[in-house]
Amino acid sequence: MHPAPSVILFTTFSGLGFGLLFWLGIGYPPVTGMTAFVMFAIAYLFAVGGLLASTFHLGHPERAIKAFTQWRSSWLSREAWASVVSLILMAAYGAGLVFLGQRWTILGLLGGVMSLVTVFTTSMIYTQLKTVPRWHTALTPVRFLAFSLAGGALLAGQIRPAILLLLIAGLVQIMHWMRGDGALAASGTSLATATGLGRIGPVRAFEPPHTGTNYLLDEFVHVVGRRHSLQLRVISLILMVAIPVALLMMPFNHVIAFLAVASHILGVLVARWLFFAEAEHVVGLYYGKRHA
């Protein structure tokens, strides 16, 4: 799949933002007043900024409101609802903390859970696609939720949970890669089933339908070299898990915390780039671009 910057930014930052909102919602850290204001501001900057970035890849962003209509069948529509509901709930809860010094526990819990539901709906947009075997697995939502919780804990300054969750998220990420590498072959879809010509003999793409490129090739056919991919996987793991965990083990100060967060975000961006760039859409088979 084409690793569009808008979608990479959106999934990374909204994941982190909603992760932080979850921790704030359940009362870790138990902030009020100015501190609460700063933390909520960061969470909203990330969550809303991510959502706004996602509208950049729309052909008609001015009609985005229509995306609320099809929640019965569409995960994208459900995501729209979940994000708005959690942002409203958490805004009310945050206002209580910041301006009134009041903790409305139930509201916070509801908002926190809805924030995770939002991350889940985002992950389901990808998970539901049978056309991308690498994404079509329960590990995809687990991976999105694990990174959202870990990154949120990191931003919320929850050192011990952050260390544990970062390690778990790293592990889930490795499992997702390992399963993903064989996913297209295991899906049973090949050029033979795509054309129905397998019964005659091995099929080879002989001539493409067009000499130039097109929407399908740009959007769905992105090939990452094996060596390149391995390098980037290692880099992302070091940045998003190893360095933050090492820094968190040190005596706490704000510079170290900032570095841990910055490294984590960079690592997640690299991993998210790979998430899209490595995802093989089956339409690539028709163009002879996939070798399962």
């Binding site: 799949m1 052909g59 962003p61 995306a67 929407y215 028709y286």
Partner: peptide
């Protein structure tokens, strides 16, 4: 009504949809 999100093209295995 289409917002041009492209998700329908992502879900089609046959490459039958193209965003203009």
């Amino acid at each position: 009504d289409c917002i041009g999100c492209g998700l329908c093209a992502w879900s089609c295995p046959y490459g039958a949809r193209e965003l203009d």
